[in-house]
Every structure is written in C-alpha cells, then in structure tokens.
Design a protein around this nucleic acid. Structure first.
Lengths: 195, 195
DNA sequence: GACGGAGGTTAACCCAGGTTAAGGCGGCAA
DNA sequence: TTGCCGCCTTAACCTGGGTTAACCTCCGTC
C-alpha cells in the first residue's frame, strides 16, 4: 500500500483485489504542483485525473463574459479532474489550480480504461464515481433552488469544514455564485447580528 | 420490440443483445398515470423507475419552508425516477407528478439489479445513466453560476423545445429558481423590448 | 348563465446582491 | 524603509427579483 490516500478514496467504492491495487499503483505517477500552478488548464486534453495527496485545488470555469466561477474545491483524498469533459472526450473547459503547494497521484484515463478491461472491479468503481459526482451536483442544484446566498454559505462550511482557512474568500464567493463584495457584506452583517 | 421508446432510450447507452431485451420487457409493467396524479410521492420508497411512453412529468422537491422547486421535467423517452434517493436507498424526497394524462413503463429497481447480475451489458447501461445524470446536473450548476434568470429562461427553451405549451409557467419559474411573478415580469419586459 | 377555481398578469414596495470605487492591511521585493 | 501587490472591507448607488395583493381570463361544473 504505497499510497494510503488512494486506498482510502477507492476502497469504499467496491472490493478491489490486492493484485489490482498493485496494477493500479504501477500506472500512477506522483507529481507535485506548486501553489498557483495548474494541474489542468482550459484547452488541455481531459485525458488524466488524479487523487490529491496533499494540498487544495480549485476547479474554475471561465465564462464567455470572462467571469470566473468556481465549480468545486478538492482536498486530500479527493478525485481531481475535468470529469464532464473526460466523459465527453472534449478539451477541458475547466482550469484546475493549486491553492497551496500540492502533491497528486496522476492516472491517464487511457490507462484506467485498460484497468477496466482487465478486471470488472474497476467498472464498478467507475460507476460509483459517476454516482457520487451526480449526488454532489444534485445537492448543489438543490442549494441554488432553495437557499439564499447566506444559507449557502453556512451549508458550505458545514460540508467542507476542512477548507477553513485554506481557500481565499473570493473563491468561496465564486463558488456560492456571488461576488466577494456580497460575501464580505454577509459576513459583517452576521458579525453585527451576533454582536 | 414491444416498446420502441424503451429501445430508443437505452440502446444508445451500449449494445444489448436480443435475449436481454426480452428479459427486460418481461419485467416491465405498463402503467397509466392521470393528469395531476403521482408516479411517486414524497415518503414513498424509491424502489422503481420508468421510461415515459406518453406525457410530461414534473419532479418536485418540497423544501423545509414549504416552497416547491422543480428539479426537472421528463417527457416521452426519458427516464423517470427519484434517482438520487434510489442510489442512496432512501425514501423519496421528490414528488413525480404527471402534467398530462400519461403512460409509463415501470421497472422495479430490484428487478433491474437481477438483470445486472445476469448480464454485464446492464452494468454498462447503469453507468451511462449515472454519467448522463451527472452531465445534466453539471450543466444546470453552470447555468446557476453564470446566467441571469432571463438567460436561464432562454437556455431552458433552447434545451427543451418539446415542452413548449406543455408545462405551466409557474413550473417553469420554479425550475429556474424564481417566482411566477418574476417570470411574468421577464416575459413582459422582453415583449416591450422587441415592441 | 352564474359561480368558482386555476393559472397568468400587473403594480407597489422592499431587500439582497451587483457594480464601482475608495481605502485598509499584511507581506514581500527593491 | 518605501512602495507595491494581493486580499479584504466599506460605502454609495442601482437593479433584479421576492412579496403581497388586486385583477383578469379561461374553463368546467352546477
């Protein structure tokens, strides 16, 4: 078990025999990413993904008008990649950028496909990954439909306590779908409300 | 091929041998749903899903505060079910209601699992279904992050032209995350703008 | 034909959040 | 030290959308 983070992430998704773990680890490549450097930038082929070993990343989509919106953050143990673009085999529209000096364990999607062909356990894993991604997005949809920005903020910290102090406020705002000004306002409003 | 809609929906997701089609059809049960009747109501077990043969449905989530938000519409050929709750094996939080007299082809999730155990093609289908659900939600997330209500309205009609005239405006509003009043305002604003 | 309900529109008023612009403050480089 | 830069805050002003409530169809039912 050279990479406990890998094991933590993948083993809850279905039983994987020892021999397959070894095969997987042999395909992985460890890589470090400097603060503010990109794991993936818009236009790159979405042909690899990773497990975060160390650090926090932001997944950013630059809209047509030039505005940045943050789709997600990823920290230790989480999967990193332009998942939608991978599925559609299109170039990435997403920038993936380290907010701290980071280390990741990289797989090429092509190699993962070979894993799948070799053993059915990986197919099950891939399915669970798809389902988990879906559940995350559905929860987020619900938040946009039902909650105010302030409530979304609370939900955010409740769901991501480990990001406290590790992500700049402007990015939290861009994740919530508001401006950094509005976020600052919400926070001061609340500061006063509770004295 | 007793149910062409079933074939249309599922066959693009992966090759399915003739014998498996027959097995699937033997498990399905045709059911009709009256206008305003429910295919599923909150609290029901999320233990079945369907393919829509005829009609339009709305998937509604009733929030804690009693507000209704519309997660999606489903028309002919689309999959109908409380997917998130199915994955999590929890009772449905979603109401699924016919907006027109409708007919559906119902499967019990349990039966579908038997299909999966019998032949690998169904596993592939299940995975593609998960991926498609994810892509839909991701697109919606992006719309909430980047677009105004008015732009979301345009996007909605561009993506769902077949729903024109079949869904009441209040439901479109609830899908966009605004009130029917706001939607009416947007439409009149636009009517004036273009004379 | 009268009535009532469902769905849509309009208007008045309010508030959350966008926009712009002006600081504040800590850290880092010259 | 000074000055700049990145990040955050605050204020002023504007706008989109929420809320409430009145009203208007169009139907379907009696």
């Amino acid at each position: 078990m050279r990479f406990p983070k890998l094991y933590e992430q993948l083993s809850p998704l279905g039983p994987i025999p020892e021999s397959e773990w070894e095969r997987a680890e042999s395909l992985a490549r460890e890589q470090s990413v400097e603060r503010k450097a990109h794991f993936l930038r818009p236009g790159d082929a979405a042909d690899r993904f990773a497990v975060v070993l160390q650090g926090v990343f932001r997944l950013v989509r630059v809209s047509a008008r030039g505005g940045e919106s943050v789709k997600a953050f990823r920290a230790e143990g989480e999967l990193l990649g332009a998942y939608a673009e991978m599925l559609q085999r299109m170039p990435s529209m997403t920038a993936i950028e380290a907010l701290e000096p980071a280390r990741v364990l990289v797989f090429r999607t092509q190699d993962f496909q070979t894993l799948e062909e070799g053993h059915g356990c990986w197919v099950r894993v891939a399915r669970r990954v798809a389902e988990r991604h879906f559940l995350l997005k559905e929860r987020r949809e619900q938040e946009f439909l039902e909650l105010s920005a302030e409530e979304r903020l609370d939900t955010f910290w409740a769901e991501h306590p480990h990001l406290r102090g590790r992500v700049p406020q402007r990015d939290v705002a861009a994740y919530l779908g508001i401006t950094e000004v509005a976020l600052s306002r919400i926070m001061s409003r609340r500061r006063k409300r509770t004295e």
